[in-house]
């Protein structure tokens, strides 16, 4: 019953390097924006761009290091890469466009 055991065809390394590197990267990408905000070195606009950039990089760390984003079942394409990419596209559209559309009400407190 090979089915009961993980197959040898997908040999797993004995130390979880991928997860450890991912974890370290995620810590670094959290500390950097925290430091940028608390230290007030940058002006607001570059600061916001900087910390959002770190957050976007964090998505990639989680997706590629932890979530096996590009792995499929080996039968046909890994469709989730397409579907989630469309999802991120629409998420950005909905947030960005809502801010744009609703900006007429900025004076409302």
């Amino acid at each position: 019953m090979s089915g009961q055991h993980p197959s040898t065809a997908h040999a797993t390394p004995s130390f979880p390097w991928q997860y450890v590197i991912g974890f370290i990267l995620s810590l670094v990408l959290t500390v950097i924006p925290l430091w940028l905000v608390l230290d007030h070195v940058w002006k607001p606009t570059p600061l916001v761009i900087g910390i959002l950039l770190c957050a976007v990089l964090q998505i990639f760390v989680q997706l590629f290091m932890f979530m096996h984003f590009t792995h499929g079942d080996g039968n046909g394409p890994a469709y989730q890469t397409v579907i989630l990419s469309i999802g991120f596209f629409f998420a950005i559209i909905f947030i960005g466009a809502s801010i744009w559309i609703m900006s007429f009400g900025y004076q409302v407190q």
């Binding site: 469709y79 989730q80 579907i83 989630l84 469309i86 999802g87 991120f88 629409f90 998420a91 950005i92 909905f94 947030i95």
Partner: peptide, 13 residues
């Protein structure tokens, strides 16, 4: 995965 895409939209709203 597809469900997560819908949850992503939920959070984006």
């Amino acid at each position: 995965w597809v469900f997560l895409a819908t949850d992503l939209i939920l959070f984006s709203c």
